[in-house]
Write a protein that binds this DNA or RNA. Structure first.
Lengths: 197, 197
DNA sequence: CGTCGCATTGATATCGCTCAAATCCGGTGG
DNA sequence: CCACCGGATTTGAGCGATATCAATGCGACG
């Protein structure tokens, strides 16, 4: 059984617990950015929509993560948060969080570190999306996000989601994975991809 | 005449001025992340290198910007910084900057805002790179980075650089721009692109 | 046990990459 | 002042990788 991650002690007193059913929205793009969130259970997708209505997955949050962090400094949310599963979040009013950052230098540093970490992660994703070959993108994913000596990537959602992360259609991803498997570059189980060479 | 941007007053006393010739490296990937930089004059490219040696432009800094901000929390630099022109930077020791953040809450908030702003910007770029069509990428760039009522994008370097930013080859970018111009979607001058409809 | 969405594979079309070549432009040195 | 040079810009031709459309199987869930 997976135990629930706990809200960082520094801000526990500011947080209000909230439940969201699968498919429900936590906030929508354009509405007033009043809260920052911490994910306790479930999964949350942060999406944007292009002019033609096409959806782009900006980020998928897993338990133990803050999300909508950047909204601390914005008037309005820049994306829409949708629960992918039954989800439990802690909502922290932006105003209170700002005040806490001002008054607690240690927490300020922790918070900063977390934002900087996200920045690094997103930069890695930019790097990945700049690669033209689908196979090289997968390899890059395994090398940068994989764990262990033989890089192993635990896929968190569906393969379709991963395809979105990689800027590929799901068909293209399946084909590339099949090809890499055939030629022995990777190995796959239901929930993992391992880079062999 | 362009006047030189000034180092934020909060950290001016920590900074050491340094000159770098065009083509010179400011720091290299893998070396100890000892300083954060503020760009006073010139242009600086932040690059990473793939396994096959191909270069990916992570970011191009313009005067008035901090760069290597994320390195405040990292052991080593994750990218290489190269001067694209004769360049003047202010180097701020990471240690000192961290101390300043701890001791000056107002500065901490400013710094945090700057990092969060970068995060938003990079996220927008991820969104852009997730778009499949080259024309739509250009349109997205103009909509998100353009200024004014009729979105106008001032191109800072060469069109080749822009192509890199957009995840396209320079040929593809030239063709798309030509086509969009032909059909009246955009207008171009030497240094600007304007979205017409 | 029917339905829905994910996974997988096939066929085809298309867009952007690659290779190639001509021109333009700014800078440099004679 | 002019010839030259290197890099940026621009356009062409062809190919290949990925998107798109389509069909099937499968597993979860009601």
């Amino acid at each position: 059984m997976m135990s629930e991650p706990s809200i960082p002690a520094n801000v526990r007193d500011l947080a209000a617990r909230r439940h969201v059913d699968a498919g429900g929205a936590i906030f929508r793009v354009g509405t007033s950015a009043s809260h920052v969130y911490f994910l306790l259970r479930g999964r949350v997708a942060l999406n944007r929509f292009g002019p033609s209505g096409e959806e782009v997955a900006i980020h998928v949050a897993d338990p133990g993560e803050f999300f909508a962090e950047a909204s601390l400094h914005a008037e309005r949310y820049h994306c829409t948060a949708v629960a992918l599963a039954d989800t439990e979040v802690a909502a922290i009013p932006s105003v209170d969080l700002r005040a806490r950052i001002q008054s607690d230098p240690q927490f300020a540093m922790q918070w900063l570190e977390s934002v900087a970490g996200q920045l690094r992660q997103v930069r890695a994703r930019v790097e990945r999306l700049s690669i033209k070959s689908a196979a090289e993108r997968v390899r890059h994913l395994l090398l940068t996000e994989g764990r262990g000596k033989t890089p192993t990537y635990a896929l968190r959602g569906t393969a379709r989601e991963l395809a979105g992360q990689l800027g590929l259609t799901h068909e293209a991803l399946y084909r590339v994975l099949a090809a890499m498997q055939r030629e022995g570059t990777i190995a796959r189980t239901r929930s993992e991809i391992v880079l062999l060479r």
